[in-house]
Design a protein around this nucleic acid. Structure first.
Length: 570
RNA sequence: CGGAGGGUGGCUCAGCCUGGUAGAGCACUACGUUCGGGACGUAGGGGUCGUGGGUUCAAAUCCCAUCCCUCCGACCA
């Protein structure tokens, strides 16, 4: 490609709306342009990168026996009524009416479409197992798209669905896909991506992992253990609490005027929040008020709690607390007329301070097992920095990540609701078990920049770089320079090398600055001094390594370099 | 959906408080001088000042409404 003809303008200045490195460079480097909030067009360099990522994903999906299909973007309401998701999914599903007034939707994921497709095709156990996948545009009406390609409304996604006749078969296949995912992320140049245990969310299902690029600029909260290399999404993370045994002392009332908050109380009694049990009240969407008892310094993780009560909820009002026999600010888990959940952070703790359910009064020496023996013990606390790893006992720490993919064991949620069956060996009708596996293509692209850039621009891995080699020439108005550069461009192309040739007669500064924004792995420079000795220069983008090669051997040198570098991504 | 900040040539922004003929830099066009890390000169082209209404002799500027964008939070396979 000649740069003079490339439609991809570079910008010197940082766009006002961008804060993430990937967002800044994708705009500055002429990879994409916004059309609307969270909706982008890709320019040629961006499209080329995306195609290469897709090609790698496709190869790896095929290696795990995936069969690529095409599924519609627009679907009728009836299909999503079958699974119940027309009603259960919120406003992120874009619904609209066609010209006849029929309810339609834009696909945000394709479980329904794929199940509908598969149920008419796979009718015998002999067809199983199989996996179908697509790499296509999807749409989610995000409440808040942000961060360039990190969180968008319209995006390209690889979505795969596998169908099995036994749990064991799904388990084995799930592990194969998990391996394929690691291969994919390594090949596209982000081996840093880790698999973490996650919530299953609106997809349903039991086990799920997210593939996260750990980075401060991510939006997901991750809990990690450096020692045993375990990772959890904070939505599912847990820890173990252990307390030194103490003699159970008798309950004792203490006057604690004007101490409605834990902070007040710690100051008033000079006792740390870790020795307190606080009560949080929620009222569920069904109108029931429930109490949660948790250690004074901890917070309820509402996603974990939602799994306990299995519905939506809000903080209870003071009136609702009074109604179930609580005294706001001084409540305890005892003597309430509502269900009481006790977080495990206080279940085995000794002699805690808690409310006495009496204005201006607390108890000392509260012990759950003695004083609240009937309460349900649950795990709903948000894990905090320094908590103990439940696997190895080391200290956990909190970090952030970008979710670039995920895998789910879906079970029979869709096959059952959509009446997909097959005839088993014994002649009976059975319901297949599903897994599903997604990768955000654009998000992966942006994540490569987040993981690999410097102050000047992206540093593309050779496997997905828009072109493999950049040619810059110093002084194209001089015949020998121009002739050499043109010849090099020509020969490299004939040798099958993907090359971007800056054929504009611009100053070195401009050319190099733009080349850094393009971020190609290898740069060849045709310049007077070296050329006088029959040499051209090269520079490796990632390492800054520089050197020379005889002009006559430049093509072989480049091919050899590419071959060697490419080994990292096979 | 809550909080904050914005919308002025393709991009980054000034002008608004205190109303009076729309500005700068970058980018673009032409010519010339430059040419190893975002050069310079000269001459150009390009803007319904987000949109609608109002106040006024006069509105980018003041008032009302509305749309859009960004950041933080809520939400989110």
């Amino acid at each position: 490609m000649r740069q003079s003809k490339l439609i991809s303008k570079k910008h010197k200045e940082k766009p006002a709306e961008a804060t993430l490195a990937s967002h800044i460079f994708l705009l500055r480097g002429g990879y994409m342009r916004p059309i609307a909030n969270g909706i982008y067009s890709l320019l040629p360099p961006g499209k080329r990168i995306q195609q290469k990522i897709e090609a790698i994903i496709r190869e790896e999906m095929n290696k795990v026996d995936g069969q690529e299909v095409m599924m519609p973007v627009v679907m009728p309401r009836e299909l999503w009524d079958e699974s119940g998701r027309w009603d259960s999914v919120g406003s992120e599903l874009l619904r609209f009416k066609d010209r006849t007034g029929h309810d339609m939707l834009l696909g945000m994921t394709h479980e329904e479409a794929c199940t509908a497709l598969a149920r008419t095709e796979a009718t015998s156990y002999r067809d199983y197992p199989f996996m179908l996948y697509q790499i296509q545009t999807k749409y989610r009406d995000e409440a808040r798209s942000r961060g360039g390609l990190i969180r968008v409304r319209e995006f390209t996604m690889k979505d795969a669905y596998s169908f099995h006749t036994s749990e064991a078969d799904l388990d084995a296949y799930y592990d194969r896909v998990a391996q394929a995912y690691h291969t994919i992320y390594r090949r596209i140049g982000i081996p840093e991506v880790v698999a973490i245990q996650s919530d299953t969310g609106m997809m349903g299902g039991k086990i799920a992992h997210e593939y996260q690029l750990v980075t401060d600029s991510g939006e997901d909260k991750i809990v990690m253990c450096d020692k045993c290399k375990s990772y959890w999404n904070s939505e599912v993370a847990n820890t173990t609490y252990s307390y030194e045994k103490e003699e159970l002392l008798p309950l004792e009332e203490v006057a604690t005027p004007n101490t409605k908050t834990i902070e007040d109380l710690t100051k008033f009694l000079n006792i740390p929040a870790t020795k307190m049990a606080k009560i949080v009240f929620y009222t569920t969407e069904k109108g029931q008020t429930v109490a949660v008892m948790i250690r004074g310094d901890l917070e309820v993780n509402e996603i974990k709690f939602a799994k306990v009560v299995k519905c939506l909820f809000n903080f209870a009002t003071d009136a609702e607390i009074v109604k179930i026999g609580g005294v706001p600010g001084f409540a305890t888990g005892m003597n309430l007329t509502c269900p009481v959940y006790v977080d495990k952070s206080v279940a085995n703790a000794y002699n805690l301070v808690c409310g006495a359910n009496k204005e201006g009064t607390h108890y000392k020496n509260f012990n759950v097992l003695r004083d609240l023996p009937k309460a349900e013990i649950v795990d709903i606390a948000t894990v905090v920095e320094g908590d103990i790893c439940p696997k190895c006992g080391a200290k956990l720490h909190l970090t952030r990540g970008i979710e670039v993919g995920n895998i789910f064991k879906l079970g029979t949620k869709y096959t059952e609701s959509m009446h997909m069956t097959y005839t088993a060996e014994d002649g009976t009708e059975k319901t297949p078990i599903m897994g599903c596996y997604g990768i955000g293509v654009g998000r992966s692209l942006a994540s490569v920049i987040e993981a690999h850039h410097d102050e000047y621009g992206p540093i593309w891995p050779l496997s997905i770089a828009p072109w493999q080699v950049q040619i810059n020439a110093m002084g194209l108005d001089k015949d020998d320079i121009k002739k050499t550069a043109e010849k090099l461009y020509d020969e490299l192309q004939k040798a099958g090398v993907e090359v971007l040739y800056d054929d504009r007669n611009l100053s070195a500064g401009v050319q190099f600055a733009e080349a850094d924004l393009t971020g190609l792995p290898l740069r060849l420079i045709v310049a007077p001094k070296a050329l006088a000795q029959g040499m051209i220069e090269y520079k490796v983008r990632a390492t800054g390594e520089r050197g020379m090669s005889p002009v006559d051997e430049a093509v072989q040198f480049t091919q050899k370099w590419i071959k060697k570098e490419m080994k990292k991504y096979l």
